[in-house]
Amino acid sequence: MSEINEYSTDEQIVKKVIKGEVRLFKHIVDRYENKIFSIGMRLFKNYDDSYDFTQEVFLKTFEKIDMYRNKGQFRFWLTKLAYNHGINKLGSIKKDVSLNNEILDEKSITPDKLHLKNEIKDILAAEINRLPEKYRICLDFYFFMGLSYREINEITHIPVNTIKSNVFRAKDVLLKRLKGTIAEDYNEM
């Protein structure tokens, strides 16, 4: 019997998957499917390619899971694998859509498509979408993937200072908006 539950860390789950408890891989997919799909949406800007990309990433992750040997956090390893796969796929399917292209299909950025659960997420989503497109993925990686500046830099090669200043601006806006909206309900304990 495995004692894996919703509070188990990714690393604990992956360790058991490597040891042969393959069915536990489902927990990893459940935890990360929307985050990986979001990387897809940032890169391919359409649902179908992003959906295929998400499936490919998890199959690849399973195939290569032996290569993850507690080298840092699993989510960093997974993000790096997904991002690299996305960049390769992008190169092979669309030569004309560059990461520096500022125009994103408007349909895919409207707030109702973002499905962020609560107010904080909506505020951040609006802030992310105000950024030039190539930096949006940095904020996804920072806020939703929980990666550090250096980890994001290692994956995307965007300079640490650029990542830092974009994250700072987003946090600043987040705080100002939080103070103006939900702060009244927030009681000091």
């Binding site: 929307n34 499936q55 998890f58 949006r136 996804d140 993937m145």
Partner: peptide, 15 residues
């Protein structure tokens, strides 16, 4: 709180 979220969401789970 944000770490449980994502910018986009699949219409249905793929697990």
């Amino acid at each position: 709180a944000l770490q449980t979220g994502s910018s986009f969401k699949l219409e249905s789970g793929i697990s």
